[in-house]
Simulated scan of single mutants.
Amino acid sequence: MESGIVYNIIRLIVTLKEKVSMSISWRYNMLYAKATGLQPKGRFKILGKIHIHKGKNAIFSTGENFLFLSGSTYNPLTTNAHGCIFIMDNAVLEIGKNVGMSGTIIWVAKHIKIGNNVKIGGGTTLMDTDAHSLSFKDRRNEISDAKNRIDKEIIIEDDVLIGANVIILKGVHIGARSIIGAGSVVTKDVPEDCVVAGNPAKVVKILKKVIC
């Protein structure tokens, strides 16, 4: 009987601690995100440790009900990985409404647009740049390396579901309602209403289009 009471007390303390921690994290990140230049349209919530960088003349906007979870406290799939949103000078990150992601890394050198009702699994990376030039001669010099790298926008349309630990590379356009299998590396455009998987990701299934 006594052990049961002790267990319940400990459980109550842990639950209370988690709620307080979540409340503090949410409020701190809300102020932090706005201080970096986030332009939210309506409510948003960011929980856990996250790094946000917004370069000069960059744009970072979200629709209503944006949710970003970071760290294993909020999603066990992220294994304590901290999310990162890094927007370079003059780049644009547009996120629609009802978008959720966990431990995601987003690197924007040009333009990334994420539509409405998109779900992004734990540990996924989106980058619209090669980060370095493909020429080894350019890579010997920091200035020429940055000048000659290739950047191409990423577009993710509405209602896309992206599994855990996916990598989406530059120039990719993902059609509406499609599903990206966990661990996939997406290097080419994905049609609407299909499932892709693998490295590089390929269509493995066509989904039946549902008309609302």
Rank of each mutant, 00 (worst) to 15 (best):
L47F: 15
A131H: 02
L134V: 13
V203H: 02
K19N: 11
L134W: 11
N90L: 02
K34D: 02
V186F: 05
L161F: 15
I120N: 01
I52S: 05
D151C: 05
N90D: 12
I13D: 01
G121L: 01
D159F: 04
H82M: 08
W107A: 15
I211A: 08
G163K: 08
L16I: 05
I87Q: 03
K202R: 15
R140F: 10
C194A: 10
V203E: 04
G96F: 02
M101H: 05
G63K: 05
G96N: 08
E192C: 00
I211G: 01
I5N: 15
V160F: 09
E157S: 13
G71R: 08
V118R: 12
V203N: 03
K170R: 14
I154F: 11
G171Y: 03
G115R: 11
K54Q: 10
I87N: 04
K202D: 07
N98C: 01
I206E: 13
I114H: 11
A35Y: 14
G181T: 04
L207A: 03
A33W: 04
G100L: 08
I106E: 05
N165P: 02
E157T: 00
K209Y: 04
H53V: 06
S72T: 11
V99S: 03
E94V: 03
G183V: 10
H173N: 12
S21W: 07
Y7Q: 15
S21M: 08
T36E: 12
T36N: 14
G63Y: 04
H173S: 11
Y28D: 03
L47E: 14
T129L: 08
V172L: 06
T36K: 15
K188H: 15
K208F: 03
V160C: 07
G123R: 09
A176F: 00
T62A: 10
D128F: 00
I143A: 10
I87P: 04
M30D: 05
F60C: 07
A109I: 01
D158N: 15
Y32I: 02
I52N: 06
T15W: 09
I87R: 07
D128G: 02
G55Y: 07
N65K: 10
V186A: 01
I162R: 07
T125E: 04
